[in-house]
């Protein structure tokens, strides 16, 4: 494991914890897309089914369990515990427009036509676009709380660091996985507009406004 992969994982963990703590501390999930969080829970569930079939390392197992646990805890907080604060009127992205094409693509373009492999591919494709309901919600309301922008920053940084990890692995191990790389590039590109606003306008502001 190289430093980019490790910092990518930690960045991902930071994003997940930041969101969970934000909701817990403020007792509110205002401004958070429950749909994106359901998609992320679906991503982790379909990707980490190998927890049941193979053991890779203690690190690997621990992180997977934490990711899945936090994802479902977040969904629980949004749709059950703090349901009254959930801004469903602004969370109107049609997720079937993501899940259905992504499911079809996973069936068509994969490394091996087996259930676990298709589900893994599905999770990779779905993760690349799972943030869209959240970005759509922010563009609709026109603003995001600072802590939400930190969450998005770490979530975007994670896949960007993974891209560097894959470049590193290509040069030093001759390793590459086209499905992960293409989806990773798409995923990172979706955050670019946000990164720009985060860096140029996020500093010292209490709220980030994204022009529609």
């Amino acid at each position: 494991m190289n430093i980019f992969r490790l910092t990518g994982d930690l960045s991902h963990l930071a994003a997940i914890i930041i969101l969970l703590l934000k909701i817990w501390k403020t007792r509110s999930c205002a401004g958070i897309s429950g749909k994106s969080q359901i998609l992320f829970a679906l991503v982790f569930t379909s990707r980490y089914l190998d927890l049941l079939t193979s053991f890779i390392s203690l690190y690997n197992t621990t992180m997977k369990v934490i990711y899945i646990g936090c994802a479902y805890a977040t969904v629980y907080l949004i749709y059950a515990k703090f349901k009254a604060t959930y801004d469903g009127n602004h969370d109107t992205f049609r997720v079937e427009f993501l899940v259905v094409p992504v499911g079809g693509l996973a069936f068509l373009v994969n490394h091996d036509f087996s259930p676990l492999e298709i589900l893994w591919t599905f999770s990779i494709y779905l993760e690349s676009v799972a943030i869209l309901p959240q970005l759509f919600m922010i563009s609709k309301t026109g603003e995001a709380e600072t802590i939400t922008t930190h969450y998005l920053f770490f979530l975007g940084l994670y896949r960007a660091l993974y891209l560097i990890n894959w470049i590193w692995r290509f040069y030093f191990e001759g390793f590459f996985d086209m499905i992960a790389i293409v989806a990773g590039v798409v995923q990172t590109i979706l955050y670019c507009d946000f990164f720009y606003l985060y860096v140029t306008k996020g500093e010292g502001r209490s709220q980030l406004s994204i022009p529609t």
């Binding site: 494991m1 991902h12 390392s57 997977k64 893994w120 191990e173 390793f175 996985d177």
Partner: peptide
């Protein structure tokens, strides 16, 4: 861990 596959990643 030189033999990482893509599945070893998160």
């Amino acid at each position: 861990e030189e033999t990482d596959s893509i599945k070893d990643e998160l």
